[in-house]
Nucleic acid binder design. Structure first.
Lengths: 114, 114
DNA sequence: GTCGTTGTACGATAGACGTCGAACTTCGGT
DNA sequence: ACCGAAGTTCGACGTCTATCGTACAACGAC
């Protein structure tokens, strides 16, 4: 007999030390993904992919969240049929101190109305 | 009769207020361009394109410098046959405070041997 | 003027990227 | 068992991008 948590579908995440700057910058350079990150930074709890109201199809949505996950910017785990998304603030701050906050502040200045 | 400075070939640069975050992030997400920016940040005076010793052809070089210029990251002006490149530190800091320094610090942490 | 240096302009090309729709999987609820 | 909700997978598509080589232009030096 197996516990529920051990049977959860698995998603690959880079370790904290494996997060690469070029990947992070590339991931944040897309308007849709930057919007996701801004929304997540403003939220107080993990959000499902569908909760962002993105102006793209479901498959494109999947694509963007995978890019963010593989860049090490977000953590994803299954919760029933949904996928909960979480900003990897600690890891990002440890690897590239201040970078996330700078980008968020810059984004706020660049287009205040998210 | 026209003065020399007025006859210089002109390059288009975005105004300080026109610098867009997505363009900046996209420009910095390329290894060759990030290396250029790091080298320029470490230099104390403007450098010609050829002085960076980039591992790409001349035409590719021209391409990368144009991307950086159009993103508002560098300023370019002709000096004889050469083009001098200069980091737009002031404009970048004014538009996106701290961003450039964060990225430079992150790059130093990501690959210390430039 | 001629020549070498420095960079630009112009295709061309191969690969990456953002986007979609249709079919499928997984899970919770009834 | 069935159905609907939430994502994923799998092509397919057009566009953007990084790269190159060749030909060309601007300038300094001789």
């Amino acid at each position: 007999m197996v516990t529920r948590t051990a049977r959860e579908r698995q998603l690959d995440h880079p370790g904290r030390g494996e997060i690469a700057l070029a990947d992070v910058l590339h991931a944040l350079a897309d308007p849709v993904r930057l919007r996701v990150v801004r929304t997540m930074a403003a939220a107080d709890s993990p959000m499902a992919c569908g909760a962002f109201g993105l102006p793209v199809s479901k498959s494109t949505c999947t694509h963007h969240f995978r890019v963010l996950r593989e860049a090490g910017i977000i953590r994803q785990h299954y919760r029933g049929t949904a996928v909960l998304n979480d900003l990897r603030r600690d890891d990002l701050d440890a690897r590239f101190p201040g970078l996330l906050d700078c980008v968020l502040a810059a984004a706020a200045g660049d287009s205040p109305a998210q």
